[in-house]
């Protein structure tokens, strides 16, 4: 009995010391990480805004309507884009499903649901494969699509040279494409009502 207590006591002591050390380091690093993430968000917002002015605050999208929740549950919040006071588009914060779990995306849309620009933020994709989606060139596949030209959602809807570029990271591509598509539909059906 004493032996068990001694053994578990020692293990508990190691765990406690480890936890205290981690808590201490976390307290030091958390504000820095937070500030860096905000800076990254601001950069992404301005990259997808096409130089329109962005609303100061964002509107949270709450799923209380059971009809919309299934289709647009991945849309988290949106910012309004204005040009001289007229609403010209929206920036959506969307959660996409990648190979390494959820990925945060910031996507700018025109009023008609056309993609202005998109950026992939926090993700856990494989470097060299899925992580390539962080590059701005990756999103060129989707630019100016969503209104007249449909958004490609599957690999076989891409021209072969583009399909080669995403090979090895098909799941990332599907996740990104699906998020961009549902964001575009959200703008068209929920925000501007151009498609009812």
């Amino acid at each position: 009995m004493r032996n068990i207590l001694k053994t578990s006591g020692k293990l508990a002591l190691i765990c406690t010391i480890a936890a205290i050390a981690l808590a201490f380091v976390n307290q030091m690093t958390a504000p820095k990480i937070e500030a860096y993430n905000i800076e990254k968000l601001i950069k992404a917002l301005s990259a997808v805004s096409k130089n329109y002015s962005i609303s100061e605050t964002s509107t949270q999208v709450i799923d209380n309507d059971s009809e919309t929740s299934s289709e647009f549950s991945n849309v988290n919040e949106y910012y309004v884009l204005t040009d001289n006071g007229i609403t010209v588009g929206y920036i959506l914060s969307v959660t996409a499903n990648g190979y390494g779990g959820p990925m945060d995306m910031i996507i700018g849309y025109e009023n008609n649901g056309e993609v202005i620009q998109a950026r992939l933020l926090k993700n856990a994709e494989t470097p060299g494969l899925g992580k390539e989606a962080e590059k701005s060139e990756y999103m060129e596949i989707f630019l100016s699509k969503g209104a007249l030209v449909p958004i490609p959602k599957r690999k076989n809807q891409l021209p072969s040279e583009l399909a080669d570029a995403i090979s090895g990271a098909t799941i990332t591509f599907s996740g990104v494409a699906k998020a961009i598509y549902s964001g575009s539909e959200f703008v068209k059906t929920q925000l501007t009502g151009s498609k009812k």
Binding site: A18, A21, L22, V25, T29, A30, K32, I33, Y36
Partner: peptide, 14 residues
């Protein structure tokens, strides 16, 4: 695990 978490936090911050 503590070492790895520590490295991760310090790296993300600095």
């Amino acid at each position: 695990a503590s070492f790895v978490t520590l490295v991760e936090m310090v790296m993300e911050a600095y």
